Amino acid sequence: MSGKTTIKGNPSQYVKLNVGGCLHYTTIGTLTKHDTMLRAMFSGRMEVLSDSDGWILIDRCGKHFGTILNFLRDGSVSLPETSKELAELLAEAKYYCIAELAESCTKALNKKDKVEQEPKCGVPLITSLKEEELLISSTTKPAIKLLINRHNNKYSYTSASDDNLLKNIELFDKLALWFSARVLFLKDVISTSEICCWVFYGHGKKVSEVCCTSIVYATDKKHTKVECPEARIYEETLNILLYEKSNAPDQDLMQATSTRAAVSGMSYTSDEEEERSGRP
């Protein structure tokens, strides 16, 4: 049998609560500590429903009632991580008229919404050399910069150069999506020193670069040739990850993953490598 009754007792008196099937055991002092609906329920101002075993019945979901009690005890509480659970706790805080907890939940939800709306992958566009130096020196990540300038050219392009220029941009965007959490990606569109060049930085210093342009000679005039050496760019990207979250790259790993002098920051073409190794 269940019935309605009023409860008013010593603050140290314990009461048994059944909140949506979840059982809790706490004192009247905790329930009446703050000016909430629970104070009204357990200070004799409101009738409460109880069963034959003395459990006070509260017709709410009991999932977050433990958090409610902890807030009443301490005045603060660790909030849930997920937006779903935050919204659930907010609903319970509003039901029990716990204004401070409801406000904390609302702020946490607004903050999560703001973070979720921010871009996951941001690539700064370099506007000056000073800005570039500041970005690279202030980040704790390794960095990759693509210098791209379609109009920096005094010779006509070869037939495949425009396509290769686009391939470099597409590859840069793809790598930025994959590694944006681990690497700072920068795009330089104002420099006049190169047409297409990748530069790799570790601990604020230039480690290597891959220049994608060269001059070729035709029968009557010179042409600018743009290439997209994907394998070499992938290799340098993996090498630059060795500078992540460490004081210096692992030399053994650098040697195992690269056939070129990546540690010294020197970059050679395949022809230059053969000349240095003495192969024909």
Rank of each mutant, 00 (worst) to 15 (best):
F172A: 05
K112S: 07
S104L: 12
K114C: 03
S193D: 15
T140R: 13
R182L: 10
A108W: 03
K154M: 11
C196R: 01
K154F: 10
S138R: 14
T192M: 09
T127Q: 15
F200M: 04
L109E: 01
C197W: 05
F185P: 02
L175Q: 11
L175F: 11
N153G: 05
L146D: 01
L184E: 06
E103I: 00
L146W: 04
I195L: 13
E131T: 09
H203Q: 12
K130I: 07
K120P: 00
F179C: 09
H151S: 15
V115N: 05
S191D: 09
S159Y: 15
K120V: 05
Y201C: 04
V207Q: 10
K141A: 05
S191I: 01
E209N: 13
T140A: 11
Y157W: 15
A143L: 02
K167M: 11
K206T: 10
A102N: 03
A143D: 04
I144E: 02
W198K: 05
I148P: 00
P119C: 02
K107A: 06
K112P: 00
I98E: 03
V115W: 05
S128R: 10
K206P: 01
L147G: 13
E103M: 04
S180H: 15
A160Q: 14
W198F: 15
L186T: 04
F172W: 07
W198T: 03
F172L: 06
F179D: 06
V199P: 00
I190F: 08
S161K: 03
Y157S: 02
G204N: 06
K141S: 06
T139M: 04
A99H: 12
W178H: 11
E118A: 12
A99R: 12
E194H: 15
E116D: 12
C105H: 01
S180E: 07
L184Q: 12
E170D: 14
L147Y: 08
Y155G: 00
F185M: 05
K167T: 09
H151Q: 13
K114G: 00
I190V: 15
N168D: 06
N110E: 13
A176E: 04
V183D: 02
L184F: 08
K130E: 15
L147N: 07
L109I: 14
A160N: 13
N149W: 02
K205I: 02
N110L: 09
N164H: 13
N152D: 10
I169R: 12
E209S: 14
E209H: 13
S193K: 14
K130A: 14
A108H: 01
N168K: 04
S138N: 15
L101R: 05
L177S: 11
Y155M: 07
D113R: 08
S138F: 08
S156K: 12
D113G: 01
S180P: 03
L125Y: 09
E100T: 08
E132R: 15
Y157C: 00
L109A: 01
D173T: 07
I169E: 14
E170A: 13
L129V: 14
V123G: 02
T106W: 00
K206L: 08
S156E: 14
L146P: 02
E116V: 02
N153W: 00
K174W: 06
S156W: 09
N164T: 01
N152A: 09
G122V: 13
C105F: 04
G204K: 08
L147E: 09
D173E: 12
N110G: 13
E103N: 06
F172T: 03
T158L: 08
V123A: 04
K206E: 15
L125H: 13
T158N: 05
S193C: 07
